[in-house]
């Protein structure tokens, strides 16, 4: 009750935003004050700045740009670094944040402008590990095998990944000296390797995880599981895939 009371008493929300005009321009920070609305999230603050693009001192500035889509934490588009942690801006409720609220782009990705980053590398990684189930053919292949309910339950948790990139941002081993594909891609390989139809292509995924930037780049810092907004057991996925990849590597070497 007291918390709500103090939050309502606050007239404005103070934001410090790290901005950047283009992919190659220098970053700079600007401070903003927006009117407080009960229950507002960071997106609402950014919308307020867009409606009235003036900084804290009232000087007109270019409106801050960001990405968003679903506004209910299922699309992953609005991931940014909020008060030092990568998370979704839509589920970052102002009442639960310490002020001033500091917003930064997730710099593990190339910054396009302000809070917009280019997450192409994540989609390239998903292509590398073939994170899909190939069912297309020149004739009707018929229904696939059924999935055991016990496996479906945990696999569903992995399917909630929306490629937001929080795990990639927090991972110390995703940096300019490595080509690590990132925790999410390993977890997705596990998801599709578990699917009864996806299993038919498990070797291709395991080969990809042994390739450049593969599973061996993981150093078990386990930041990924801390920041995942969907609570996906990424470190369990990584360990499970370590088991699959190592068994496959040893097995296939012995068969040659």
């Amino acid at each position: 009750m007291t918390q709500t009371a103090t939050a309502t008493a606050k007239k404005t929300v103070h934001l410090i935003i790290e901005r950047q005009d283009g992919p190659n321009s220098k970053p700079y920070t600007q401070e903003f004050l927006v009117d407080y609305v009960p229950g507002m999230n960071v997106i609402a603050c950014l919308m307020a700045i867009q409606r009235n693009p003036v900084d804290k001192d009232g000087n007109p500035v270019a409106p801050v740009v960001w990405e968003m889509n679903c506004l209910e934490e299922v699309c992953g588009a609005c991931m940014m670094v909020i008060n030092g942690k990568p998370r979704q801006a839509c589920s970052a409720i102002v009442d639960q944040l310490e002020q001033p609220i500091r917003l930064k782009p997730a710099r593990t990705f190339p910054v396009v402008r302000d809070l917009i980053v280019d997450r192409s590398r994540m989609f390239d990684a998903l292509k590398r590990v073939k994170a899909w189930i190939p069912i297309d053919g020149t004739y009707d292949l018929g229904p696939g095998p059924r999935m055991p309910e016990v496996d479906r339950q945990w696999a569903y948790e992995l399917s909630r990944c929306f490629t937001c990139g929080a795990c990639v941002e927090a991972c110390p081993n995703v940096n300019e000296r490595t080509s690590f594909i990132g925790p999410f891609a390993i977890s997705q390989a596990r998801l599709f390797n578990e699917h009864p139809t996806g299993k038919m292509h498990r070797q291709e995924r395991l080969e990809a995880l042994m390739g450049e930037g593969g599973i061996h780049e993981c150093g078990n810092a386990q930041n990924c599981v801390q920041v995942c907004p969907k609570g996906i057991p990424l470190t369990t996925s990584i360990a499970a895939m370590n088991r699959q990849v190592n068994a496959y590597a040893i097995g296939s070497w012995l068969k040659k």
């Binding site: 490595t178 810092a221 930041n223």
Partner: peptide, 21 residues
């Protein structure tokens, strides 16, 4: 080589496992 290619962000993310890393 591993130590050189690793990134270090325990200052930012001070979770126990990251500190151990």
């Amino acid at each position: 080589y591993v130590a050189f290619t690793s990134g270090y962000n325990a200052g930012k993310y001070s979770w126990w496992r990251n500190v151990m890393f």
